[in-house]
Amino acid sequence: MTGVPRQPRFDLVDHDGRRVSEGDYRGSHVILFFGFTNCAMVCPRALARLTDVLDRLGPAADRIRPLYVTVDPERDTPAVMKEYLARTAPRFTGLTGTPEQIAAVRSAFRVFARRVEDPDAPDGYTMPHTAITYVLGPDGRFLTHVGDAVPAAEVAQRIRELLEASPTGAPAGQ
């Protein structure tokens, strides 16, 4: 599969242990970032930046479901993800699954991740991964993506424009 991930699907488990699919987030815009909880640099920075984005959006952020999908399912259990996000980015919901489920969602979003041995890292390995943020519309369709170098203010502006273009999106959680 190549090309734009136009209608990505997934079948995963959220950080409360519930089975979830892309259909569970219909009606809300979704921002989605892939990473792993032992990530030293990219994820903490990205999650902080995306939290900043949500803060900048103010009440409009209620129409957005922020998701953080692990690329390291061996270590990132629902409980590990819940604890990590509570500490670092509480607005996010963590998603994990079996290695097969994670492989499938990575393929759906064209996400790169690779295990690299690193004796200085926890458990002796790290996982370089794609660091772009995906934005899905209320119908689950891919709308756009932003690279990790785009400043929070610009990301917020782009998302605000997307929300304004889709004023009927229901508030998150409905």
Binding site: T2, G3, V4, R110, V111, F112, A113, H129, T130
Partner: peptide, 16 residues
């Protein structure tokens, strides 16, 4: 655009 997209997303998938 569609050729650009094809190449770009393969780049993403392959970690650039």
């Amino acid at each position: 655009q569609s050729i650009t997209d094809r190449i770009y997303w393969q780049m993403v998938e392959n970690g650039y």
